[in-house]
Amino acid sequence: MLKAENLKKIYHMGDVVVPAVNDVYLEVEPGEIMCIMGKSGSGKSTLLHILGLIDSPTSGKVYFKNQDVSKFSESKRAKIRLAQMGFVFQEYALLPELTALENVYLPARMLGRWPSEYEERAVTLLESIGLIERMHHHPRELSGGQQQRVAIARAMVNKPEIIFADEPTANLDSTSGKQVMQALTWLNKQFGTTILFVSHDADDQKYANRVVHLYDGRLSESAGEEYNA
């Protein structure tokens, strides 16, 4: 479904060259839950952003459904993100002026679905994550865990094939974090949605079918042993 070949992302900080992602090869199979583990600054969020088409690699290729999407124009990438991908960010990235329900159905509106269709789907999703009674509340009226679950519902509203989650439990207490991870795994089981998430919390590994580790931008299938480059 998703493949990265020889990915590199290099930042220049003055005269210093910082390779955030370095020669990464990765393949994500349909329906799997993959976790990218790594310490803070290891480049895992950068890798996730590149794979999710919200950032571009310095070199290398990203294939999505066998199509090289790394050189696509921003407008084409936006269409793929809208229709086939879902995103969950850390720090509850909801739009503050929209209610929970509006936040959830916004991508569906953008996709051109009928109001009856997108509203019904948004309500169903909110119901399935236990937030139906909070759907008319604004993000500021929701707890961190609730906001993150709304973000998951939003990521799901267009029935994406893959969801990218960037440290979805980072700012949550353990109970809320558990609820969020359970919501993601439930989606995977219920709809077969592929989940790719990054985390620095070793506890999150248990939700994944496969775990890869990132050290200084380099990837390893098992912690600290073999690097793929």
Binding site: G52, I54, E74, S75, A78, K79, R81, L82, A83, M85, G86, F87, F89, A93, L95, P96, L106, P107, M110, L111, R154, A155, N158
Partner: peptide, 16 residues
């Protein structure tokens, strides 16, 4: 700025 970044990330087009 962050809100705009999120809007773009979830697929809201820049012209919109």
């Amino acid at each position: 700025k962050r809100q705009i970044g999120i809007e773009r990330a979830i697929g809201i087009s820049p012209p919109t």
